[in-house]
Amino acid sequence: MKGEEITRLQSYLQRKFELPELEVRQRQKQEDSAEVYISGEFIGVVYRDDDDEDLSYQFQMAILEMDLD
């Protein structure tokens, strides 16, 4: 993902989660996904799914047990 697509995803996620500090960044070696950060901390990956008729995106975030404390 590049340019306008990343900008649109970032704007959507910032509004949805009410987090203006959320940032979506292009990945170096992957063109079907982008990294998501909050205040500079990596939190997950957004994947682009265009395998069927409709374009969609999936957000994946791993939560470690030690982070719950």
Rank of each mutant, 00 (worst) to 15 (best):
F59V: 02
S33N: 09
G3L: 11
E21A: 10
Q30M: 13
L55W: 00
D32T: 15
E35R: 12
E21C: 00
I43S: 00
S11V: 01
A62K: 12
I63H: 01
Y37K: 11
Y47G: 02
D49Q: 01
Q30S: 12
I6M: 11
D50P: 07
S33M: 09
S11L: 09
I63K: 11
D50C: 05
L19D: 01
R48H: 05
G40W: 09
S11G: 10
S56L: 02
E31S: 13
L9R: 05
L19T: 11
I43P: 09
D50E: 06
A62P: 08
Q26K: 13
V45A: 03
D69Q: 02
M61Y: 02
S39L: 07
R25D: 05
I63T: 09
R27C: 10
A62E: 09
M66L: 04
F42I: 02
L64C: 01
E23N: 10
E41F: 08
R8D: 00
G44H: 13
E21R: 03
I38K: 00
E4M: 04
K16C: 01
F17Q: 01
A34R: 10
D49W: 03
L13G: 00
D51Y: 12
D49K: 08
Q60M: 03
V45M: 08
T7G: 07
M66V: 11
R48M: 02
I43C: 00
V36N: 09
E21V: 01
D67P: 05
L55R: 06
Q10G: 02
I6E: 05
E53V: 12
Y57T: 00
K29S: 08
D32P: 08
R15F: 08
R8F: 08
Q28C: 07
D54F: 15
Q10R: 09
D49P: 06
D51F: 14
R27V: 11
Q28V: 12
I38M: 01
L64W: 14
E31N: 11
Q58S: 05
L55D: 02
E65H: 04
S33R: 15
E31V: 06
